[in-house]
């Protein structure tokens, strides 16, 4: 099977990147610069366009295992959830939820593992980072 999807995406990325590279604002001093803020981005983008065109013509073999994309999607969703909760409840509670949901998605059934392990990990992290090392971590808007 000759995959063309990925090379096409790369090509599109290159084109969009070069398009934006032409839109970079130049400061007044750039006029005197042989290599200004746009030069290298345009060069890199053009190389990518060239190479991905070559790959597109030649085709490449891609094998993404399809059977477990559901699991990948659920994990991505829990990461998004983590990112959304983080500023609200703080990193440690959010970390517990992330771990619990990932453990469940991965099929961990023993409740003492998927409840206790995240709790202990979070507690340990908090003790180590905030108490022992004295790093200040935002507590989250929910608590204030």
């Amino acid at each position: 099977m000759k995959g063309r999807a990925l090379p096409s995406i790369l090509l599109a990325f290159g084109v969009v990147y070069v398009w934006f590279a032409y839109g970079i604002t130049l400061d007044p001093w750039s006029a005197a610069e042989p290599v200004n803020s746009r030069t290298l981005p345009i060069a890199y983008g053009s190389i990518l366009i060239l190479l991905s065109t070559f790959l597109l013509v030649r085709g490449m073999r891609v094998h993404v295992p399809r059977h477990n994309l559901l699991r990948l999607t659920s994990i991505s969703a829990s990461i998004i959830g983590f990112g959304l909760l983080l500023p609200r409840v703080g990193v440690w509670p959010a970390l517990i939820l992330l771990l619990v949901s990932c453990l469940m998605i991965m099929g961990e059934k023993r409740w003492h593992i998927f409840i206790l392990a995240p709790l202990l990990a979070s507690l340990g992290g908090w003790l180590l980072i905030e108490i022992l090392l004295g790093v200040y971590v935002e507590p989250g808007t929910f608590w204030s």
């Binding site: 905030e130 022992l132 004295g134 200040y136 507590p139 608590w143």
Partner: peptide
């Protein structure tokens, strides 16, 4: 070392 942040509810009061 700083004071634990978790006891915030009590602290807020």
């Amino acid at each position: 070392m700083q004071r634990p942040q978790r006891i915030r509810l009590a602290l807020i009061l």
